[in-house]
C-alpha cells in the first residue's frame, strides 16, 4: 500500500514535471535532470563565457517587429519581434508606473541609459547582446560583462546588507543543489530593464537562479520585486548559451568614448574642430 502510494506519488511528480516542462519551455529544459560538472569545492561549475540570444533587451514583453527609433539606421536597428520572456502575463505595473513606462518608451532615445553607456543594472546585464564571463570561486562568483565593462561580485560567504545604492546592486549568493541563487538589493533607480522603457525604483529586489541544464546551457530565472512600481513580484526566464568559439573572450567595449559627442557635443566651443 505504502509502496503503491509512493509509486503513484512519483508518477504524479513526474507528470507535474512533464506538464510544467510543456507549459514553460524556457524554464523546463528538464530541470534537475542534468548534473553539472563540479568545481574543486564540489559546487556546480558555471565558469565560462555566456550570452543570451533573444529579444529581451528590446522589450521583456512579447512584441511585434517594428521600425527602430533612428530613421538613419533603417532595417539595421529595426526592432526584431519576440514572444517575450515574462512569465504569466504582462508586467504588473501600478497605474502611475504604467504611465511612466509609456513615457519612457516615447522618450527612449533620450532616456534609455544603454544609449549613454551607463552600467546596465540587473537583470538587464544578462540579456545584453554581448557576452559575459563567470569566474567562480568558493568565496566570490564574479560576473564580468562586455557592455560598459560592468562587473558584479557575488558574495558567497560574507553576506552583507548593501552598503550603498549602486547601478549593479549588492549581490549575496548561495547554492541550492544545482542552482546558484543570487539575491541582489541596493540598486539606484536609474537603470532600465530594456529599450522599451520598463523600469524600477531604488526599492528593486532581484532574486536570480542560474541552473546548468546541459554542458552549454544555463537556465536563467529572475524574480523581480519592487513595491514602488509593481503590484506583485513577477518573473522572467530564459536560456543562456555558452559561447563555444575557440577564441571566445570578453573583449574591450569602452563605450563611454562612443557617446561623448552625443552627451557633450553641444558644449563644444563653436569654433573648435
Amino acid at each position: 500500500m505504502r509502496n503503491r502510494f509512493r509509486r503513484s506519488m512519483i508518477v504524479t511528480v513526474v507528470m507535474v514535471a512533464v506538464l510544467s516542462w510543456a507549459a514553460t519551455p524556457a524554464a523546463g529544459q528538464a530541470r534537475g535532470a542534468y548534473r553539472a560538472p563540479r568545481t574543486a569545492d564540489g559546487k556546480p561549475n558555471l565558469n565560462g563565457i555566456w550570452q543570451a540570444i533573444n529579444e529581451a533587451n528590446w522589450d521583456l514583453e512579447g512584441h511585434s517587429a517594428a521600425p527602430g527609433p533612428v530613421i538613419a539606421l533603417g532595417a539595421a536597428a529595426a526592432v526584431p519581434p519576440g514572444p517575450g520572456i515574462v512569465e504569466g502575463g504582462p508586467i504588473p505595473y501600478q497605474p502611475a508606473a504604467a504611465a511612466k513606462k509609456k513615457e519612457n518608451f516615447e522618450k527612449r532615445l533620450t532616456l534609455d541609459p544603454e544609449i549613454k553607456c551607463y552600467l546596465p543594472g540587473v537583470p538587464r546585464a544578462n540579456y545584453m547582446p554581448t557576452p559575459f564571463q563567470i569566474i567562480q570561486t568558493p568565496k566570490y562568483v564574479m560576473m564580468v560583462y562586455t557592455f560598459a565593462r560592468a562587473v558584479r561580485t557575488i558574495y558567497m560567504d560574507d553576506h552583507k546588507e548593501a552598503p550603498a545604492d549602486s547601478w549593479m546592486g549588492w549581490s549575496n549568493g548561495h547554492w541550492e543543489g544545482e542552482t546558484l541563487v543570487v539575491d541582489t538589493t541596493g540598486f539606484n533607480d536609474l537603470s532600465w530593464f530594456d529599450r522599451a522603457g520598463n523600469f524600477h525604483s531604488d526599492a528593486l529586489h532581484v532574486v536570480e537562479r542560474y541552473t546548468a541544464t546541459s554542458p552549454d546551457h544555463l537556465l536563467y530565472e529572475a524574480t523581480i520585486e519592487d513595491p514602488n512600481v509593481f503590484t506583485r513580484p513577477w518573473k522572467i526566464s530564459m536560456p543562456i548559451y555558452r559561447r563555444l568559439e575557440k577564441n571566445a573572450q570578453i573583449m574591450e567595449f569602452r563605450c563611454v568614448e562612443f557617446v561623448e559627442e552625443l552627451l557633450y557635443g553641444h558644449l563644444r566651443k563653436p569654433t573648435s574642430k
Binding site: K116, C117, Y118, L119, A164, S166, M168
Partner: peptide
Amino acid sequence: LFEHACAE
C-alpha cells in the same frame, strides 16, 4: 571594492 561608477 565598491562599484566605481564614473561616467554615470
